[in-house]
């Protein structure tokens, strides 16, 4: 009886764990909300500089929120910083790929930036299929999906220990189904971790000279404009080595790119 009770308890604990994690609020949540409100109010009264400062403060505290990036993007757009706006909308879509508002705004910002300058990449390649599959769902969705399936699988395995022989087959089958689902979700997460090794970024200033080396004295290889997506290969002090979709590489100041 004791073993059975233990198995049931653990299974129940695993079931509620994701819910507990989702409902947990950090100790400084009120401060974050305060900054959020401050940013919104500043934006609504037209003080985009103050609004961006408040949102950036949240970003520096590693707050991950699609809403935050969305509002930051709108603020940058209003302030005329199109490269920054595109970065923020892109980031919002990374967190919530199905956010229609962010997608619309990103399109608008790119359209406006394209009227100023447009980087046409000869021979640009599409993102590989696995990358598109991995990013089809948002990281949050993938994480909760994985957690639910994974913990559910193990919850059933714990239950199985305390069940009679007759009922074990059904529980084992359920655990196998959940385990397979967890494996697939885990593969998606692994792919996302792999993508993080060569993070995508967006060019922030309106125009940037990409150098041949990590110093401003090096020759300019080519120029890019705000909003262009690049991959960051590595970092050398204040400079990052970036690669364009068509394979071109060069060095930019780290402050000139926003990581997604």
């Amino acid at each position: 009886m004791k073993a059975r009770a233990l198995g049931v308890s653990i299974a129940a604990l695993l079931a509620v764990m994701p819910a507990l994690a989702a409902l947990a609020r950090p100790a400084h949540a009120d401060l974050l909300d305060e900054a959020w409100k401050r940013g919104n109010e500043a934006h609504l009264r037209g003080d985009y500089r103050a609004a961006a400062a408040a949102y950036e403060q949240l970003d520096r505290q590693h707050v991950v929120s699609a809403d935050l990036y969305y509002n930051l993007g709108v603020t940058y757009f209003r302030a005329g910083q199109l490269g920054h706006a595109i970065w923020a909308f892109e980031r919002s879509l990374v967190v919530a790929p199905d956010d229609d508002d962010a997608r619309f705004n990103l399109t608008q910002a790119r359209k406006l930036a394209g009227q100023r300058a447009h980087d046409k990449l000869e021979g640009a390649e599409r993102e590989p299929l696995w990358s598109r599959v991995v990013t089809y769902l948002g990281p949050s969705t993938e994480v909760w999906l994985f957690c639910g399936l994974y913990l559910g699988c193990f919850g059933l395995l714990f239950l199985r220990r305390s069940m009679a022989h007759d009922s074990r087959l059904a529980v084992t089958t359920g655990a196998a189904i959940l385990g397979t689902g967890a494996l697939l979700a885990g593969l998606l997460l692994l792919g996302r971790v792999n993508l993080d090794r060569l993070p995508a970024a967006v060019v922030l200033p309106d125009r940037v000279s990409v150098k041949e080396g990590a110093d401003s004295n090096f020759r300019t290889s080519f120029e890019v404009h705000g909003g262009l997506r690049v991959r960051v290969l590595d970092r050398e002090q204040d400079w990052v080595r970036v690669r364009l979709a068509n394979g071109l590489e060069g060095f930019m100041r780290a402050e000139d790119v926003g990581l997604l």
Partner: peptide, 22 residues
């Protein structure tokens, strides 16, 4: 060309999952 307006929610909605896997 313009963008859709701000999201003026009362509290900041955080995406714990996006931060959790790291």
């Amino acid at each position: 060309i313009d963008v859709r307006p701000l999201r003026n929610r009362a509290a900041l909605r955080r995406d714990f999952g996006a931060a959790l896997y790291r």
